Simulated scan of single mutants.
Amino acid sequence: MSSSRLRLPLRLLPLAAAAILLAGCTAGPLYGARGIDPATGASSSALTAMRGRVSMPIAPTRTSQVFRNAMLYALNGAEGARDPIFELRYSVTASDQVSSLEAGTGIPSASLYRMTVDFELVRLQDGRPITKGQRFAMVPYDRTQQLYAAERAVIDARDQAGKAVAERVLSAIAPVLKREAENPAPVTPSK
């Protein structure tokens, strides 16, 4: 066998490996279209019906509000929750940790902002929690001796952490919401 006949398949090996790995990929956009509604001809997905159906309690702090705003936008878009079926209950904690000091002065020069969210998705019909967990995000930022710049850096780090942790919580509850949309819980008569 000549070496030129072996080189062509070896060059295609990474492409073939990528094709094999991606063949099993089932990820898609959260509210993306999966099929066509036969009645209207519009694109639909199981999660499209859930848009606007998840409510969240009022945030007690500004840090919690940053997470809540990002989460509500991810769940419901620009709309408010209408006739909610689920409630996403949450508790937000945040910390600021110095990660670097200036040599000689000992003044902090860099920090890590960590936001942690404990969450529980509750079906309002029966008050039953259907999933719960904890997610966090860490955002590094530079500290400075200028007061305004230092405050702005903390605010920006908090905003970035809120968006990042909201994405992580969303990716944790999205499969549960999809399952609930495809197989809704039966209505139980009240006693």
Rank of each mutant, 00 (worst) to 15 (best):
N69T: 15
G106T: 06
R89I: 06
F119D: 00
F86E: 02
I85L: 13
T116R: 05
T131R: 00
D126G: 02
A103G: 15
S100R: 14
D118W: 08
L124D: 01
L75G: 13
L72Q: 12
A94F: 09
S91K: 02
N76E: 13
R114A: 04
F86P: 10
L101C: 10
G80C: 13
I107Q: 15
E120D: 07
L124I: 08
G106H: 06
T105I: 12
G106R: 09
Q134E: 05
D126L: 01
A70R: 07
V98P: 00
F86C: 13
G77P: 03
N69I: 15
Y90I: 03
F136Y: 00
S95H: 04
D83M: 14
V122F: 06
A137D: 00
G104V: 14
M138P: 00
L101V: 10
L88H: 05
L75A: 13
R135K: 03
V117M: 05
A103T: 08
Y73D: 15
D126T: 04
Q97A: 11
E102A: 14
L75R: 06
D96P: 07
S99D: 10
D118F: 05
V98C: 08
I130M: 04
R89Y: 05
G104F: 14
G133H: 01
I85D: 03
T131E: 01
G104R: 14
M138N: 08
R82Y: 15
A110T: 05
R135E: 02
L121D: 05
P108L: 09
S109K: 10
E120H: 03
S111Y: 09
G80E: 14
I85C: 11
R89T: 07
G80T: 05
R89F: 03
D118M: 06
M115T: 05
Q97R: 14
Y90T: 03
R135Q: 05
M138L: 09
L88K: 09
S91I: 02
A78M: 13
A110F: 13
T93S: 10
S111F: 08
D96S: 12
E79T: 14
P108M: 10
S111T: 10
L72E: 14
E120C: 11
T93M: 05
A94M: 05
G77M: 12
I85V: 14
L72P: 09
N76P: 15
S109M: 12
R128T: 09
P84G: 11
E102D: 10
P129N: 02
F86W: 06
Y90Q: 03
S100W: 15
G106Y: 13
P84W: 09
G127P: 12
V122C: 03
A78I: 15
E87Q: 13
L88D: 07
Q125F: 03
Y113P: 07
Y90E: 00
L88Y: 10
M115K: 03
V98M: 08
F119V: 01
D96Q: 09
G106D: 02
T131S: 04
T93D: 08
N69A: 11
Q97H: 08
T105G: 15
M71W: 06
F136S: 07
L121C: 01
R135V: 01
Q125R: 07
S100D: 13
E79R: 14
